[in-house]
Simulated scan of single mutants.
Amino acid sequence: MTDKSFGYALKENGRVLAALVIRSSVTRFGESRIGYLWTLAEPAIYVGLFLSMHGFVRAALPFGDSAMLFFLTGVIGFRMTNLIARKAANGLSHNQTMLSYPLVKPLDTIVAAFILEVIIWTIVCALFIFFMYVGLDRKIIVYPLEFGAAILAIAFFAFSFAVFNAVIGTLVPIWDKTLSYTNMPLMLASGVVFVPATLPPSVLAIISWNPFLHCVEWFRSATYLDYNSVLDRTYLLSVAAVLLVVGLALERMYRNKLLENE
């Protein structure tokens, strides 16, 4: 009886998540194709801006022999992490009406939005890697296993950050607005346009606290044979684990209040 009950509950939860993923997709893009195109265009625009700035100031290439590859790995590494976390966190507020159904829990809305964003960014990442492969006519991912580990680590951190932010953002409304102001500083401090290992030790000691930097470093490390990385895998995974535990604990403690707010 217990096995059947567990299996039934698991199946019902799967149906709930599937319905929420579809709803999140419709909410995210609607019937317009512009949203899908913008998802692809946004990273390309960032890379284009960095390439233009690099060419304008005629600065030395930070690393490797391709400015496009260097900036693309930085932009994709950061934007993928940041946007998966942000969009997944928004799943709670964007599915307010669904929380009136007994089967739908606050965490389900976050998980559903997370699944959708992971699917989207997997496609985006694959397309850009393919375009770079065609454009540069060379292998882009030199360490496939390391690349796979980087994607999993990014997904883990993004989900943990999303759970934490979704709960805190609902309980403290000013949190989301404050967090939105940090997007550009975080990107600039995440090694998108420079090699962190080349910085003075005093500066590196400060920006190394930024977990997004380690996401970018892990992602970029899989695309170069001899990249000098400052990646700290233990630190990144530890931060993700702490955020997830705290976020889940707060969600359970304040679930009734979250539902009331909704």
Rank of each mutant, 00 (worst) to 15 (best):
175 W>N: 12
128 F>M: 06
166 A>Q: 01
141 I>P: 03
217 E>I: 10
209 W>H: 07
217 E>D: 14
53 M>E: 01
173 P>C: 11
127 L>D: 00
97 T>N: 10
115 I>Q: 03
227 Y>F: 14
129 I>C: 08
226 D>N: 11
67 A>E: 01
79 R>F: 06
191 G>K: 03
115 I>G: 02
182 T>C: 09
161 F>R: 07
250 L>A: 03
164 F>T: 01
239 V>I: 14
117 E>R: 12
61 L>T: 06
179 L>P: 05
157 F>V: 01
63 F>M: 00
261 N>T: 11
228 N>M: 12
173 P>T: 10
23 R>K: 14
120 I>G: 04
211 P>A: 09
216 V>P: 07
257 K>Y: 14
231 L>W: 12
246 V>D: 01
30 G>T: 13
16 V>H: 05
202 S>N: 05
238 S>K: 07
142 V>W: 03
227 Y>R: 04
228 N>F: 15
256 N>D: 09
74 G>C: 07
207 I>Y: 08
56 F>D: 03
173 P>N: 05
159 F>D: 02
51 L>G: 06
133 Y>H: 12
107 L>S: 06
199 L>M: 11
216 V>I: 07
114 F>N: 04
250 L>S: 00
196 P>K: 13
15 R>V: 12
38 W>K: 07
221 S>D: 05
116 L>W: 04
70 F>K: 01
158 A>V: 02
49 L>W: 05
3 D>L: 13
155 A>Y: 12
59 A>R: 11
192 V>A: 03
6 F>Q: 00
237 L>Y: 11
158 A>H: 06
260 E>R: 13
237 L>C: 09
137 D>I: 05
131 F>D: 00
151 I>E: 01
109 T>N: 13
97 T>S: 14
109 T>A: 13
116 L>R: 10
207 I>M: 10
93 S>C: 10
191 G>W: 04
105 K>Y: 15
112 A>Q: 08
167 V>N: 00
168 I>M: 12
114 F>L: 09
14 G>R: 12
199 L>I: 04
201 P>W: 10
59 A>P: 08
202 S>R: 07
260 E>S: 15
153 A>H: 09
242 V>I: 15
253 M>K: 12
32 S>W: 12
249 A>H: 04
22 I>M: 08
46 Y>C: 08
227 Y>K: 05
200 P>Y: 02
146 E>T: 11
34 I>C: 07
51 L>I: 12
148 G>R: 09
199 L>S: 01
115 I>N: 03
128 F>C: 02
145 L>Y: 12
236 L>K: 02
15 R>W: 11
107 L>Q: 02
183 N>D: 00
73 T>P: 12
55 G>L: 13
98 M>K: 04
